[in-house]
């Protein structure tokens, strides 16, 4: 594998967006890009990552390769990332290490790190990427992040309901409750403020607040978040990157007995 990001902070943002959700991951590298899936220890949150060749300045992968890493180690190396540096990832055919090369052409500086790969035997879940949903919402990632930060302070459970009035985020804590209603809108001058809802059925689902706080760490990857809900499946929270690919979080709901 030889894959070069023209801006090393892109890879840092990707890794930082899920390093607190899962501790280790297998990157599956092939000619169609880098893909990965990991499940958190409680088996409630699944991270699904896709970095297609379009995200790279140059991308070459001669044969499918699995690259297992501890995310805390990788994240330490990526502290060296800067927007003025490129980052090339190298993995040999018989991989036992990942080489990261940062190059700053203006500063005539290069940094090289080598990281030992780990053999990760995690089971993978079969996720249908065309999973049917009753409700799809596209909205500002900044707005979603603020709502999650504000409301999760009040309760361990966070409820999302979608009906004819719009989308309602609410919490009902021991000492306080809160509710935010958003209606669809189109802001032609600032499309990142758009909110669209398509719905075949109303939904009313609750999630554990702590996982939502992990999910919003990926909001640095995209202006928009796409939400998919259905009463029968986990919810999908997805941040799509400008150059293609992105990160999706599948989150199992909480049900009242």
């Amino acid at each position: 594998l030889e894959a070069k990001f023209d801006d090393s902070t892109i890879f840092k943002k990707i890794i930082d967006s899920f390093k607190d959700s899962v501790s280790q991951i297998n990157f599956m590298c092939s000619e169609s890009g880098i893909e990965a899936q990991a499940i958190d220890d409680s088996r409630v949150l699944l991270v699904s990552l896709s970095i297609p060749p379009s995200c790279f300045e140059t991308y070459r992968c001669d044969r499918p390769t699995t690259v297992g890493v501890y995310l805390s180690s990788l994240s330490k190396l990526l502290k060296s990332a800067s927007s003025s540096a490129t980052l090339t990832l190298y993995v040999e055919d018989q991989p036992d290490e990942l080489l990261l090369l940062f190059e700053e052409s203006k500063a005539s500086k290069s940094m090289e790190y080598k990281m030992k790969l780990v053999d990760i035997t995690a089971d993978m879940l079969e996720v249908d990427s065309d999973m049917k949903s009753d409700v799809s919402v596209e909205m500002s990632g900044v707005e979603f992040t603020k709502i999650v930060r504000d409301l999760t302070q009040l309760s361990d459970s966070f409820t999302v309901s979608v009906g004819k009035d719009g989308i309602v985020f609410s919490v009902d804590g021991e000492t306080a409750s809160g509710k935010v209603l958003l209606q669809p809108k189109e802001d032609l001058a600032n499309p990142e403020n758009n909110l669209s809802i398509s719905m075949t059925k109303t939904i009313d689902l609750s999630f554990a607040s702590k996982y939502l706080l992990d999910i919003i760490k990926a909001s640095t990857l995209s202006n928009m978040i796409s939400l998919k809900f259905s009463e029968e499946t986990p919810a999908l929270f997805e941040f799509k990157m400008e150059k293609g690919g992105g990160i999706g979080f599948y989150l199992a709901p909480k049900y009242d007995e």
Partner: peptide, 14 residues
């Protein structure tokens, strides 16, 4: 407030 479901209840292991 509710019982947390696990992903294994929804997705099959590959």
């Amino acid at each position: 407030q509710g019982t947390q479901k696990r992903l294994d209840g929804f997705f099959k292991v590959k």
